[in-house]
C-alpha cells in the first residue's frame, strides 16, 4: 500500500503528557483533533508557540506512535534545542506542523524487517502497529541497536506485541548482543520476501545499504534525517545526494523522509 498524501496543517496543542523511556529520552504526547490522519514514516515540525530562548526553528520528529487517540513523538536530547524541549512543562502550548513528507510504502511481504539505530527507533512502533492491522499474517521483526544499556529504550509489553521478533544490540555489550545491528544480521540479508526498513545514524544506514546491495536486495526503505528549517519544501535545506542526477539532490522533506536506498548516492 502506497501512502496517500495527507493534508498538512498547523496545530496548536498543549503538551499532554511525557514519559521518560531511556537516558535523555522521552515520549511527548499530544491529543490531536479527531480524524487527523497520518502515515508511518511521516513527520511533524515541533516548536513552542511562545518563541524558545534557545532554539528558533522547529524540529522534525517522526510520528512515533498513534495510540488511544494520542500522537507520540520520541525525543532524545542530542543538542541544545532538544535538551530544552525535554524541560518543557505539561500544558506548554506547542505548534505542530504536519503531517509532512512521504512515509513508508507497505507491500505484502512475508517478513517486514526493521533495523533501527538509537533514536532511529522512532518511526517503527507506528509502522509495526499499522502493519499488524493490515497484514496480521506477516512476520514483523525489529533489530534495534544502541550505544549502551542506559540509552536503550525498553519496549513495553504492548509495544513488544507489535513484533514477532525483537533483537537488541549495544555497542559495548551492556545489553543484548554486543556489536552493531548490521554485523548482527550476519547472513540474513539474502533472505527472500523481506521488506526492509531502516532508520538511524548515517554510518549505520550506509553500512546496511551496502549489505543490501551486495545481496541484490532491490527494495529497501530508509527514513533519513537532515537539518530542516521548514519541513515542507520551501527552505531547501534538507538535501540528500541523488544517485541519478539531475537534480543533484533529493529534498528530504517532500520527497522523503523515507527514500528507497537505490535513489541515494551513498
Amino acid at each position: 500500500m502506497t501512502p496517500s498524501p495527507t493534508a498538512a496543517g498547523v496545530f496548536a496543542l498543549p503538551l499532554a503528557s511525557t514519559a521518560d523511556i531511556a537516558a535523555g529520552t522521552s515520549w511527548l504526547r499530544f491529543r490531536p483533533p479527531p480524524d487527523t490522519a497520518c502515515e508511518p514514516g511521516q513527520f511533524f515540525m515541533l516548536s513552542t508557540v511562545a518563541p524558545s530562548p534557545v532554539a528558533y526553528l522547529g524540529r522534525p520528529f517522526s510520528i512515533g506512535d498513534v495510540r488511544d487517540g494520542e500522537w507520540f513523538f520520541m525525543l532524545r536530547a542530542l543538542g541544545r534545542g532538544t535538551a530544552w524541549l525535554r524541560t518543557l512543562e505539561l500544558g506548554t502550548m506547542m505548534r505542530l506542523v504536519g503531517p509532512l513528507g512521504v512515509g513508508f510504502a507497505r507491500d505484502e511481504s512475508k517478513v517486514h524487517r526493521m533495523i533501527a539505530g538509537g533514536i532511529g527507533l522512532a518511526p517503527f512502533l507506528f509502522l509495526a502497529r499499522r502493519l499488524r492491522t493490515e497484514q496480521p499474517e506477516a512476520a514483523i521483526e525489529l533489530y534495534y541497536g544502541e550505544r549502551d544499556a542506559r540509552s536503550h529504550i525498553e519496549l513495553t509489553a504492548d509495544e513488544k506485541e507489535l513484533f514477532d521478533t525483537v533483537e537488541r544490540f549495544t555497542d559495548d555489550g551492556s545489553l543484548g548482543i554486543a556489536g552493531s545491528v548490521v554485523d548482527g544480521l550476519e547472513n540474513r540479508w539474502a533472505e527472500p520476501e523481506v521488506a526492509w526498513y531502516g532508520c538511524g545514524p548515517q554510518p549505520m544506514l550506509r553500512a546496511a545499504a551496502a549489505k543490501l546491495e551486495e545481496h541484490d536486495v532491490d527494495s529497501a526503505q530508509f527514513a533519513f534525517e537532515e537539518r530542516m528549517a521548514c519541513g515542507f519544501g520551501v527552505c531547501q535545506a534538507c538535501i540528500v545526494p541523488n544517485r541519478y542526477p539531475p537534480p543533484r539532490y533529493h529534498l528530504l522533506c517532500t520527497e522523503g523522509p523515507v527514500l528507497e536506498i537505490g535513489k541515494v548516492a551513498w
Partner: peptide
C-alpha cells in the same frame, strides 16, 4: 542545484543559510 549540506545553522534568534 545549490550548495552542499549542511545548508542551515540555527541560532538562538534566527538562522544562517
Amino acid at each position: 542545484d545549490g550548495n552542499p549540506a549542511p545548508r542551515v545553522a540555527e541560532t538562538s534568534t534566527g538562522m544562517i543559510n
